[in-house]
Write a protein that binds this DNA or RNA. Sequence first.
DNA 1: ACGATATTCAACCAATTGGTTGACGTTTCC
DNA 2: GGAAACGTCAACCAATTGGTTGAATATCGT
Lengths: 106, 106
Amino acid sequence: MTPALDHVFAALADPTRRAILSMLLEDDMAVTDVAEPFEMSLAAISKHLSVLTAAGLISQEKRGRVKWCKLEPDALREASAWMQGFGQMGSIDLDAFEAFLARELD
Amino acid sequence: MTPALDHVFAALADPTRRAILSMLLEDDMAVTDVAEPFEMSLAAISKHLSVLTAAGLISQEKRGRVKWCKLEPDALREASAWMQGFGQMGSIDLDAFEAFLARELD
DNA sequence: ACGATATTCAACCAATTGGTTGACGTTTCC
DNA sequence: GGAAACGTCAACCAATTGGTTGAATATCGT
């Protein structure tokens, strides 16, 4: 039910990745330019970008030899909606909830 | 600057832990009762509760032989605020940002 | 065609994570 | 005082994560 949410929150748990998202707020960027301010290898940044892409937080489009990274706000909105909705959930039918968990945690 | 955010998002990345938070919305619960619907050991749930506590998402108070778990919404609000504020950040001074990263990623 | 640029891939490594089991310390109840 | 209930601790395990380096693959400019 919520594997997407798993990936979104896991992606957001890393400060480097949050910093990358902040940078992409400004504008779309090439991988090399994303990597420039960080003190780690390009390959490491490339991996971080893969994680963000898998989570749906960014998209990457290759034009020529440069791969452009673009913020995708929908996934963020989904996670944000989970949090917002959190306080508004009503009473839980515990039997149904247990059945739900059995399905989800399979 | 944002180690707390790291822990909050990492804690939220696990479906078992999100389910626990949902259960605690309903009411404060003892560790044993939290564990009951899940198909895993009590020790595993105990670890999950430690992670949630470390992230500040819940608090635990021992009364007698039972340890009560209580939702702490402030940490959630902090993460939610990060997301909300995300879309509202202005232009970034890239030199300052780089300096900021240098400090933060130490 | 060649050299430089942009990016990923593959192999590796240390540290962390999510789970298990069994032993252990407390508190309660009879 | 002794058994049962509550919960954690310690040791272990397999899988994942976040990083490295070096080689490989495209693409571009001349």
